[in-house]
Write a protein that binds this DNA or RNA. Structure first.
Lengths: 159, 159
DNA sequence: CTGCCTGCAAACTCTTTGCACGAAT
DNA sequence: ATTCGTGCAAAGAGTTTGCAGGCAG
């Protein structure tokens, strides 16, 4: 059934098509371009980055479509949202079922490192249970001074 | 906990005055009203809440002054900023030197519970060190479905 | 054919900032 | 007197949304 292109994405693409079909939505050209861009861009990217990449695949993709597609991409686990409290949110292609990740964030430059933190699952359950609540998600972030050569304040912060 | 009166705050007020004086700033009427409001309002509050309270103490306080005072209040440890990824940030009167707190956040209503999480200090150090970085701060948040009577989606959300 | 989707641009929300007057030291 | 501080209002930035066609199913 899936389009028999040589593209390595045909499989995931089919899964995404199924996801939107099941929701009564349509596999438009623009939507699929955003999907393809979302899983192709590497590392953490912004909505604007995603727009650039999607446009390189389909010139007609607009900013509005990007923002309207993002919730679908998250809902279908194609990407994950990473909010580190900056002005813009970041997104990340979701590799496997890799949940429970912490972020190590440089306070001065763009660097964000994903770190496995499986104990978050236990912690979330424990804390929520103690207050009679049902855990839904957890977030753990460490802000630090990085040593990246390109970091404007390499190794700075607190003497 | 007895509600602190204006006179009871004179001590902390003095500390705050010292802080701004040491920075070469001035103890203006508006600034002190915001300070007094910041340490009086209970629970988590927004900049807008702070404005309301400060205005009840001094009619002339403007929104701009609130936003300009907040960094001073944080810098002098009078309040702490709590960013849970919503559109507005929250602030909280800083009781003691209580650092390393996690937040338990209801995904549907306003409820935010502060939870001690001292292990964050160790975790931040360990993770940062592993990447040759120097830890600066850490944040841990658990989103959950709450059982508050006033919660619009009481106990909702699937496991 | 239906009605979901799209691009465009205006709208929105919280926060920041330029300006000229006001006030703390 | 000096500067810093203030209110006002406009500017900003990222994201959302109303509208009039366009296209998937």
């Amino acid at each position: 059934m899936p389009k028999p292109t040589a593209s390595e994405s045909s499989e995931q693409s089919g899964a995404f098509r199924a996801f939107i079909a099941q929701k009564g939505l349509r596999a438009t050209r623009q939507r699929m371009a955003v999907f393809e861009a979302a899983r192709t861009v590497s590392g953490h990217y912004t909505a604007e980055d995603l727009l650039k990449k999607a446009r390189s695949l389909d010139r007609s993709v607009s900013r509005a479509t990007i923002y309207r597609a993002i919730p679908l991409l998250i809902g279908s686990s194609v990407i994950r949202e990473v909010d580190v409290g900056r002005d813009q949110k970041y997104y990340l292609a979701e590799a496997g079922g890799a949940n429970f990740r912490a972020q190590l964030i440089c306070e001065s430059c763009e660097t964000i490192v994903e770190v496995d933190a499986p104990f978050m699952e236990w912690y979330g359950k424990a804390v929520a249970a103690k207050h009679g609540m049902r855990p839904i998600s957890q977030k753990l972030q460490v802000t630090a001074a990085c040593l990246n050569d390109r970091c404007p304040r390499r190794g700075a912060a607190r003497p």
